[in-house]
Design a protein around this nucleic acid. Structure first.
Length: 300
RNA sequence: GGGCAGUUACCAGAGUGGCCAAAUGGGGCUGACUGUAACUCAGCUGUCUUUCGACUUCGGUGGUUCGAAUCCAUCACUGCCCA
């Protein structure tokens, strides 16, 4: 039986350090499950593995897309499954490490096949929003997919709009694409959750932000100012710097404060998501022996 | 020593007699999440209670009043100005 070891946890908890140890132990590359590290050029702000770390162990799905290029959890699922079948040809273990909740779920449970929304449809829906507001989008969804209308958060503009986009583009209700069923995988998944005391985690996040600035986060972000509206850069650590450049914040100290704060919020959201997954077995990141013996015990 | 201003929940900060457990923002906590998800969105945040509601709060103390965060006296502390 093949095993996929999934190491997950909130930002700043210490996933990278552990992943290097595990990669070595099980002689397997690291598959990064990180929706932002996948982009090239934003290594500092996304705390991607450093170059020396990457020469030590192979890291997949890090820095492989250009900023502004489209990528998604669904695509990640496809790409990783393909990669996994390669790895499993000569490995019993594969290792995936990251904090992007939906990316991890996509690989572990699969996602339904929801069509990619083309630019024209996207624009049409944006126009409707422009003219009729959220109310207009809501009414449209009620008309096109009353099923989904009942379940969706009617204040969540982004999800509302996406559902409408899919309905309009395909001519079918958005909910008709949802099966909510877990896809079978031909390998076993071992989910390891990493967590620390909240206070300790927040402290680590705070000091890491300072470190990022010392490494040149500001300069890194600055060179991509022209791409600030792309999804890849709608990211903690970058958006705050762009807001500063646009005059929203008047000094760098405030920028740092906001980045720390938003990172903490993000970590919290991650924990909320992970908490409901009963398959995750939780460890303190320093408990390497415990983690390894747990993995080995899963073999049977 | 004199003058003025102030002291409100974790923080900032409204409230100047009843509609006040007290606006608003931040922080914090909890949660939702199926394709741009480090996104986007929601709830809670004095105590007890599932709710209704009850109880204790607005620097301390003592008053005025049917009723006080709000008015008066006094004490303490803080800031600014004059010495």
């Amino acid at each position: 039986m093949k095993h996929l070891i999934v190491v997950l946890g909130p930002t700043g908890v210490g996933k990278t350090a552990l992943s290097l140890t595990l990669a070595k132990k099980f002689s397997t590359p690291v598959i990064s499950a990180d929706s932002r590290q996948i982009y090239k050029g934003i290594e500092i702000g996304t705390a991607a593995a450093t170059e020396s770390e990457r020469t030590l162990t192979e890291h997949l799905f890090v820095g492989i897309k250009e900023l502004g290029e489209y990528y998604s959890a669904g695509q990640f699922e496809q790409d990783v499954l393909e990669k996994l079948s390669n790895i499993f040809e000569h490995n019993d273990y594969a290792l995936m490490v990251g904090g992007s909740m939906m990316y991890i779920d996509a690989v572990c449970n699969g996602m339904d096949n929801i069509p990619y929304v083309d630019g024209e449809t996207r624009k049409n829906v944006a126009d409707i929003f422009q003219k009729q507001g959220l109310e207009g989008i809501r009414n449209l969804l009620q008309l096109l997919d009353s099923e989904h209308y009942k379940r969706i958060d009617l204040k969540n503009k982004q999800r509302l709009m996406h559902a409408v986009e899919v309905c309009l583009m395909t001519g079918k209700p958005y909910s008709s694409f949802l099966s909510a069923s877990k896809k079978a995988r031909n390998f076993r998944i071992i989910k390891i959750g990493l967590n620390r005391e909240r206070e300790e985690l927040y402290e680590r996040i705070n000091t890491r932000v300072e470190e990022m600035f010392a490494l040149g986060l500001f300069e890194e972000a600055k060179q991509f100012y022209h791409l600030k509206d792309t999804n890849a850069l709608n990211t903690v650590g970058y958006k705050e710097i762009y807001q500063y450049m646009d005059g929203v914040y008047s000094d760098i100290e405030t920028v740092k404060k906001m980045i720390k704060q938003n990172s903490r919020h993000y970590a919290k959201r991650q924990l909320t998501w992970f908490r409901r997954d009963s398959e995750i077995v939780w460890f303190h990141p320093d408990n390497i022996n415990g983690i390894i013996s747990y993995i080995e015990s899963c073999e049977k």
